[in-house]
Amino acid sequence: MSEMTIHLKIWRQARGETKDSQKSQGRFVDYTVEKVLPEMSFLETLDLLNEKLTRQGQQPVEFDSDCREGICGTCGLVIKGTAHGPNPKTTTCEVRMRHFRDGETITVEPFRAGPFPILKDLVVDRTAFDRIQQQGGFVTANVGSAPDSNAVPIPKLDADKAMDAASCIGCGACVAACPNASASLFVGAKISQLSYLPQGGPERGRRALLMIGQMDREGFGDCSNHGECEAVCPKEISIENIARMRREFFKGALGGHDRKAATGD
């Protein structure tokens, strides 16, 4: 395999620089990495760079990753202007160097959104998603022993759609790619998932109102239906989940009982 030389233009930002002001003091720094192999992953190239920086006594570039096989949702970079890199249906950790040319310059930026403050370099704080989930992305059930399979009949199509929505790994690429920095695809997936299942039924109105309320309080933008989120989503979550989220919200807002429960008044 032929070795490649890759030029990287990476966003560097010290800890605590944007937390409050939101005014960025970060900057791009140019690096060159030699002896990159086409079969290496993009994150391994960053590892290589960090080894070099550490040897030179410089601060390594901070970025997030965990499983490195596309299932955990921890990684997330905007590579060459696209969240999770130029290839569809993949996470950042699944990006391979064979998709780039020898001598190419690659711009690397963090997922940018007001509600995702930059912690350092390419690492952003995505706990806004956790707070949205905590508002209703669950079923309040008395968990006894495991029920018999098929004790609760669920139509095949509903089960499939619920499973599709459930495959969201909460990576935040939808927010990063959205021109409005909206979290609608993530929240749509979480709300839809439970709306297809009988277990999600009793709390559905309240769930939609609370989760969408939290999404708005976090400061995410509104959705203009560009659909860019679906294109970058590593799990191919469809924007039909956003339409469904809006139906759930509408029904929830009309349901008097649910509304009282949701707002406590």
Partner: peptide
Amino acid sequence: TDKRKARPVGYALVRNAGGKSRK
């Protein structure tokens, strides 16, 4: 207005993802 508030610092480089995107 909401759009501008939600991303105070913009990207240096933005490419359309294509595929299923309607952007």
